[in-house]
Amino acid sequence: MYRPLLSGLALLAIASLPLQAQSPPPPAVVSVASAELRAVAPLLWTPASAVSRQDARIAAEASGRLVSLAEIGDAVEAGAVLARVDDTALKLAVAEAVAARDRLVARLEYVRSQRERLSQLAAQGTVSRAQAEEQAAEQHMLEREREGAEVAVRQARHRLSLATVRAPFAGTVVERLAAEGEFLSPGLPLLRLVDTAGVELQARAPVSLSALLGQGDAVDVRQGETRLRGTVRAVVPVGDAASRQFELRVALDGPAPLIGSAMEVGLPRAAASDQLAVPQDAVVLRPGERYVVRVSAENTAERVPVELGATVDQWVSVSGELKAGDRLVVRGAERVRPGQALQIQNEAALAGLGGDGAVGGSR
């Protein structure tokens, strides 16, 4: 009968005990760098597509029944066999041309020996010189015919080689346009071969930007949340009269994306101006947010949301509640909590991290 009363007193006693304050987390060991004013060009983000520099529809050059064809997904080296056409008739044509040439060679050997014999007899006066000259003329004619027969053999062998379709470059078979058993005619497409290693971006930009772009310029590239760097490989110096745009090709720095991927290229749309920039390593990217961790005067962490601009040479322009000279965490920002004390490793080296530079690919 006393057990409920005792339990209640015990609970009251526990509730009356002072709460122990939670201990603060230990200082986070980080590296920092300073925000700087840098020359930045405002960007125009234009759509781009990942394309291959070599994308070909391989066609047949010989007529005949298709007996083999590479499968979709096959990765082949340059010179590898992609398809074969029934070459029975072509082999017979080669044999016929070789036989015709051999007959001429045999005839030529006989005429040459006859000419030598008649030349000796003419010198002795046994036969007339006209007979020896006639034999020499026949030998000359047969020599020319033999040359023609050699050409015919080479032509027959060339036609035979066309029955085997080989890859003009290394790539991957991505589409079959014919099937085994079909009768082919010269020029009929067989398959599509794509070089999946030589990938670049194809983009179009307003002609008004042409003066700000040149071959070898660095540009920003993005695909969703992923930021990349690229280099202008080629600028096509011809604009479209209807769209007032010109084409450019951008080579990517890093792994090649899937061909056909939709991306964007950031192109300078005006001359560069001074803007606030931070090291790329200072920016923390998470779904729905982008921020940097600023070091306060008390060496504690402050999370500052930012919007990103152009990127170059490991620096990115930003807009937000920052100013030049602010110390930002560049190593360990992902694990730092707001208000947490910071232990800075490279305080003495901060002076060597800055420098002049241009951001945004301006020329």
Rank of each mutant, 00 (worst) to 15 (best):
A163Y: 04
V98W: 04
S161I: 08
A152T: 05
G224W: 02
L191M: 13
E200C: 03
A130Q: 15
A179P: 05
E182P: 13
V221Q: 07
L201Q: 04
E225A: 14
V173N: 01
A137N: 07
L142N: 11
L177R: 08
E143Q: 12
V151W: 09
E182Y: 00
L142S: 02
A179Y: 01
R157N: 00
Q202I: 07
T164D: 03
R146Q: 09
R192A: 06
T196W: 01
A203Y: 03
V153S: 05
R204V: 14
S161M: 02
Q124E: 03
Q131A: 13
S113H: 12
V194Q: 00
V127G: 04
L121F: 01
L184R: 06
A197P: 00
L142R: 12
E225F: 00
R166E: 13
V153D: 06
H158I: 05
R154G: 04
V194S: 09
V98Q: 12
Q124T: 03
R107H: 03
A179Q: 08
A205K: 01
R112T: 14
L191E: 02
L104A: 03
V151A: 13
P189N: 10
P206S: 08
Y110D: 07
L108D: 00
E225L: 10
T126A: 01
S128G: 15
H140M: 15
R103T: 15
E225C: 07
V174N: 00
R159I: 10
L121H: 00
E138C: 06
G224H: 03
A137D: 10
R166N: 11
L177A: 07
A218G: 09
A156Y: 03
L190F: 04
E134A: 15
L190Y: 06
L162I: 00
S185G: 12
A136M: 02
R166T: 10
A152F: 06
A178I: 11
R146G: 07
S208W: 05
E145L: 14
A136V: 14
R176F: 09
E109S: 12
V219N: 03
E147K: 12
V105M: 09
R112L: 10
L121K: 05
S210T: 09
Q131R: 13
P206L: 05
A137K: 04
R107L: 02
E96H: 12
L177N: 02
G224P: 15
D102Y: 04
E175L: 04
A97N: 00
S128Q: 15
S210V: 14
G148P: 07
D195S: 09
E109H: 05
H158F: 14
R107Q: 13
S161T: 05
S185K: 13
L142P: 11
D102M: 12
S210F: 06
L212A: 10
G125C: 06
A152K: 00
D195W: 03
L184C: 09
R117M: 11
G171L: 05
R144W: 02
Q223R: 13
S185R: 15
V221T: 10
L184T: 01
A203C: 08
Q202G: 11
G187N: 08
G224T: 13
E116A: 07
L213C: 04
A178G: 05
